[in-house]
Each structure stands twice: as structure tokens, then as C-alpha cells.
Design a protein around this nucleic acid. Structure first.
Lengths: 200, 200
DNA sequence: GTCTATATTACGATAGAC
DNA sequence: GTCTATCGTAATATAGAC
């Protein structure tokens, strides 16, 4: 970096403040006044950087979506046995979710009231579909259980992964992304029950 | 019922309309104008039945919380081996979630901007804690895997269960609560991987 | 780039007629 | 029990000074 310190905002730095407030109060529950207080500048100064609330939302969810879709282009997500690719994608999803926590959190809470929100929902569905195809392929290989429907299993595993945004906080001496990813992979693929324990 | 048909609202019947709109648009994204349009009566008529938006929210989340806490009082949740009680609670959570879908959906989306929302969050945490204790006991019995921390496992399983509200829709010839509960129990306890398949 | 001041609209809630 | 009309506030956004 050439400029170690800034004293003015850019759309990027303003975004990080806005996303934090959006996640605290909810997007609809956040007013431009809330944002101006949190950023320490006036409402009209915010309009100098961005066109309004919705642009901030669009920038935020775009960032989250780009990171998620990026996973599918990675080498280990494209080559090898389907169940292995699936495990890799699940692990990377957890890592991206934690690395981009506020952005993904906002993405996952989008409802669909505006065009930006509906666009985000559509791209999310597209991503889900891509992962579901992976699970379907693994089922075809006989590597995952056949007694739970593929689409249902995908949704439940996504639910497990996505729920991380509801409680994970990077502060303190807590868990790292690796540890959470390990736990998710172990639970999602192996389940709660102790290995070797028979079903009652 | 003595009155088979009604042509006016009661707080109860109004609630069902309000909860549906809250879930479609988000609580903060729903105005009294939205509610009046959906209910087919004027804004001021709504105020005749309830004190305002927040009372509708309070009634809705109370109903969801009462149903969830009710699970813990049921016979099979109180007697027997911890892992069996846990499985019963997980199954019943899915069933309650589906039976009271709009109410639980609203509960799970509460953020914490008002006193009602903060109260709901606190009661949710209390419920989570009760289930976490059950899992802890099952771990002490050696019935669940010890390589994933109890609190983390609880959160992930809750994430899987709670995510049902994001996609389950009762309409059409879809799955029933029983089938979803079966799938959740199988995945949560047994995992995705095919039974008998070794870890790579 | 930031500010104060303000236009304009939407919101939650109330008054009072029927 | 429902309505129209309206109050007071808070919302998004803009104008224009510095």
C-alpha cells in the first residue's frame, strides 16, 4: 500500500461499515441515518460515494457470490471422484463463508423486495443447483447414501453450512475456519453417531 | 365451532395474514399499509384488533416458542437414553417446524431491533441450550462422536433443522413432515456417506 | 469530500364519523 | 368493526455552500 492511512471514504471502505450495520439491524431496518452515524459522516456524504442503500447491498452480495462461484472453478472442485469434489466444495464453502463472513451473511439474509435482492436470490439458486449436481453424481457413483433424496440432502447440508453465519464470530481465541470446516465435513459426511455404533 | 363463517377479523385470524406477509417481505420491510392491503381492511381497522406491528410479531413468535418448548416436556424427551431422547427431540423439532411453519419461520428471522425481538432471541438461546445439554449427555454416554465439540455440533444440527423454513412449502404433492424428519434424523445422525463406506 | 438545509414521500398511529 | 382523513415523525434523496 502506498497510502497507509486514509481520512476519507471510498466506496470500498464505506461498504465494510455499511455491511456491518446491515447485519446488525437487518437491511430493511437500516436507515441512511444509521449508516451515517456508523460511518461518522453525514447522509449526503454517503450519497457522494454511492447512489444509495441498494448499491451498497449490490456491491456486498456481488462480492459474496463471486467468492462462492470461484470455488467451483478451483482445480479440486473440477477433477477427481464426485464425492471428493463435493467434500472439497463443502470445505471451501465454509472457508469462504468465514473469510467473507459479513458479505455472505448479508447475502444469505436477502429476502427479495428489490431487483437487487431478487437477482441475488437467483444467483444463489444457481450456485445451489451446481452443488446439487455434484451430490447427484456422487450418488450415481454409489459414494453417498441413496435413502435420502439428492435435492433434500443438498438443502440440509447447505442449511448446516449456511447457519455458520448465525453464530461464528472471529473475535477472541475462538475456532479458525479450518476447525469449523473439519467439523462440518465430519458431521455432514459422517453424522453425529459414533463411528461403528449400530442404528437402534 | 359454533360460528362456521366469519366476516370480520379477530387478533388470531389477522395474525395468520400478518405472519404470511412478514415472511414474504421481512418484518422490517412490511408496513401497516402492506398488512392492510393483504388483509383487505384499512390500517386503522388493524389498530382496532392489535396495538401495532410489534404485537403481531410478539403473538407469532410466542406461538412458535411455546410449541418448541412443549417438545421438551413430552414423555419421550424426558425418559430413556440421552441419544434416544435427542433423536426424538430432533424429529419433533422438524415436525413442529413444519406444522407451525410461518410462525417458526418468523421466529428464526428475528434480528433484535426491538424489545420483542430481543426477548425472542433470548428464549431461542434458552431452547438451544436445553438441547445442547441433551447432546452433551449423549456424548458422556459415548453414543455420539467425541471429535466434534458439543456446542459446535449442536449449532450445526440446529442449522440443518432450522434451514427447512427456507425451502419447505406445504403446497402440492410434496413431502410430508414425517419424510423430512426421517431425512434429517438420517443425515444428522448417520451423515451423507454411505453406511459401511470407509473414510478416505 | 463533507457539510447544513430541505424537498418529498412513506411510515406508524390516532380521531372521529358511520 | 370498519372507514376516511390526518397528525407527527422518519425515511430516501437532492441542492448548494464551503
Amino acid at each position: 500500500m502506498t497510502t497507509a492511512r486514509r481520512d476519507t471514504y471510498t466506496p470500498e471502505t464505506l461498504l465494510s461499515v455499511a455491511v456491518r450495520v446491515f447485519n446488525e439491524r437487518g437491511y430493511d431496518g437500516t436507515s441512511m441515518e444509521h449508516l451515517s452515524k456508523a460511518a461518522g459522516i453525514s447522509k449526503s456524504s454517503i450519497y457522494h460515494h454511492v447512489s444509495g442503500k441498494e448499491e451498497l447491498l449490490r456491491r456486498a452480495v456481488s462480492r459474496a457470490l463471486d467468492e462462492l462461484f470461484g470455488i467451483l472453478d478451483e482445480e479440486q472442485a473440477r477433477t477427481g471422484r464426485a464425492v471428493e469434489r463435493l467434500e472439497y466444495v463443502v470445505r471451501r464453502m465454509v472457508e469462504v463463508l468465514i473469510a467473507e463472513l459479513p458479505y455472505v451473511t448479508l447475502l444469505l439474509r436477502v429476502r427479495g423486495n428489490t431487483v437487487t435482492e431478487r437477482w441475488a436470490l437467483e444467483r444463489r439458486r444457481e450456485f445451489d443447483h451446481r452443488v446439487a449436481e455434484l451430490l447427484k453424481e456422487a450418488a450415481g457413483d454409489g459414494d453417498v447414501r441413496a435413502d435420502v433424496e439428492v435435492r433434500l440432502a443438498t438443502r440440509l447440508v447447505f442449511g448446516m453450512i449456511n447457519s455458520i453465519v448465525e453464530w461464528y464470530r472471529p473475535d477472541g481465541r475462538g475456532m479458525g475456519a479450518r476447525e469449523v470446516a473439519d467439523a462440518v465435513v465430519q458431521l455432514a459426511f459422517g453424522g453425529l453417531r459414533k463411528a461403528g455404533a449400530a442404528r437402534g
